[in-house]
Design a protein around this nucleic acid. Structure first.
Lengths: 330, 330
DNA sequence: ATGAAAGCGCTAACAT
DNA sequence: ATGTTAGCGCTTTCAT
């Protein structure tokens, strides 16, 4: 059914080489005459010829496809990241091939392998793997990989992430400035760099404001709304008082809000709330929620930049950090 | 670098045929002895052999890849759709290849073409094309295509969409039941089936409740937040009174909320608000927003089902509708 | 129960 | 300025 390069060649009365050179814009070498080029191009358009990526990929070993694996594409942070990655891919003439890990290390592994077998030119992954599992994962990839959002084993593979520590510190400081004295920390998967760094920022802000660190009000779970709900319940049961709450991700905040509403019928003014990540609708809640907005566009650009670099044979293991924006909401 | 089927064959002391048969689970024909199979499998695992999709695709004409083009992956509806499509693709051993149209017909065309040139087995598209442009678009695809969310030219290609009319009618009826007498309709791109059908539902609900249809409070724009803001401004300037507002998509609602907040400093209890689409955070707004939740999982499943069917050579042009859920919020 | 060989559509080195 | 040819890694028909 599909028309091949051979068809075009026959139709134009030239060789496949000639056609190939023309469609790949390599007629530049003045090798091909103006008129042959015209003629061939006309026929190409006429017949709607589309070179097969498969045949080409088989030869050239470039798929113009890059893989993106993330735990969840609904989470507004990853949704935006996804959107922005697609946009920069598009500008580069690439396509994004998706894989969802559901924050499950095993699934992540199989999904990444699947993408590799699809011959992606590069892999961008928001990984749930902790450092211990790294070597195994690293081994199976001959594909340029950059870790995004979550940094794995500093020093092994390139990565791009937000300034987690500074962002968390800014948000927690803002809580302090508003008079909070006991701020609970509801974290995500504790082994991930995001959680660790945000906890560090929390700690730093506490210290800066002369507040003590109390592990009784520092909880961990995973990055799901249910986990947010559960952590808040645990906190309540423990009767360790608190007047403010910092959630380390949007999803966790969602769970917290659900639980607050369930308990109070509405979102009460106390505890004060701050969160990593942002969402437009936060502007309209009855209480002012301090949030930290990540620059997904910059993250996306940086990730591609690193992939590009690796593809060009400069496999520098670089770690980039992107600034975040504090949205105070008064 | 990569290990090929020839390597495995050599290592195992068998032919490529044998290896191929084994990795494709076609040893079932008892053709291959138990022990050869074992041996080959061991070596495959040992060497981490991954057959090249390109070579295979070249032969078999199946990429196990399907394309998804949507206007925006941040919009929570499309984010969820994207997420769910990835999940069902994964279960089928397929991957999702992304393309964003930004609700621009030209971009949509080029992005769809790009996906086709990547040899996707099928195309799922939330199209911004209106009926007039259809023939052109349809022509370039020899690829099984199903339109999702937005139905193009009833009768030409398969489609899956929500019960837009019923959903809108339910939401608007709920507004009536709460005492609304003049309900404004803020639509999206008027040529799209979603807008038309939701408008129909609005109309039907009005009629059912004995309310007149007044075109002065029925506006159209596009599916962006800015458009929501502008429509609300136009409405205010026109001084055509209204006591309730129905937005035909989440994005439009976002723009409306932004404008309301800008004007009143907060979201006022009047006008009453209802919208197509849903978001978890709507639960926590200070005013009860009636929303209509689409069943993205069902949409995703249906879309794949139709693609599957077409691939199996039953190219029935089918139009599926999936029910929506009214979330009243009192 | 297994192998040889042709060929999918393309690119690129090497003629001419 | 243009053509020949040898693969890329795989599947599949046809032998054995």
């Amino acid at each position: 059914v599909a028309v091949t390069i051979a068809d075009i060649a026959r139709l134009a009365g030239v060789s496949k080489t000639t056609v190939s050179l023309i469609i790949n814009e390599k007629a530049a070498a003045t090798r091909i005459s103006r008129e042959t080029e015209e003629r061939v191009r006309r026929i190409v358009v006429e017949r709607g010829f589309q070179p097969s990526r498969y045949a080409r990929g088989l030869r050239v070993r470039r798929s113009h496809t890059i893989g993106f694996v993330a735990p969840d594409f609904v989470n507004p942070f990853f949704a935006r990241l996804n959107h922005d990655l697609e946009a920069v891919a598009r500008r580069q003439g690439c396509r994004l091939l998706l894989g969802c890990s559901e924050d499950d290390p095993v699934l992540e592994g199989s999904v990444a392998t699947a993408l590799v077998s699809h011959q992606v030119d590069g892999l961008i992954v928001a990984s749930v793997l902790d450092d211990s599992r790294l070597r195994k994962a690293g081994a199976e990839r001959a594909v340029p990989t950059v870790f995004i959002d979550r940094e794995i084993a500093h020093g092994t593979a390139a990565s791009v992430a937000s300034e987690n520590e500074a962002g968390a510190a800014a948000a927690v400081s803002e809580l302090c400035r508003r008079g909070a004295r006991r701020i609970a920390f509801l974290g995500g998967i504790p082994s991930l760099s995001t959680s660790r760094e945000r906890l560090l920022g929390y700690h730093r802000a506490l210290t800066a404001h002369g507040l003590p660190y109390d592990s009784a009000i520092v909880l961990h779970g995973d990055y799901s709304a249910e986990s947010g709900t559960q952590m808040l319940e645990r906190l309540a049961r423990a009767r360790a008082g608190f007047d403010a709450l910092f959630t380390s991700a949007y999803t966790v905040l969602e769970g917290v809000l659900a639980q607050l509403k369930r308990r109070h019928g509405t979102i009460p003014p106390e505890p004060m709330l701050a969160t990593f990540d942002d969402h437009p609708l936060l502007d309209y809640l009855p209480v002012p929620i301090i949030s930290v907005r990540q620059d997904t566009e910059a993250l996306a650009k940086a990730a591609f930049d690193l992939i590009e670099r690796a593809l060009k044979g400069t496999p520098a293991v670089e770690h980039r950090r992107v600034p975040v924006e504090l949205i105070p909401r008064v």
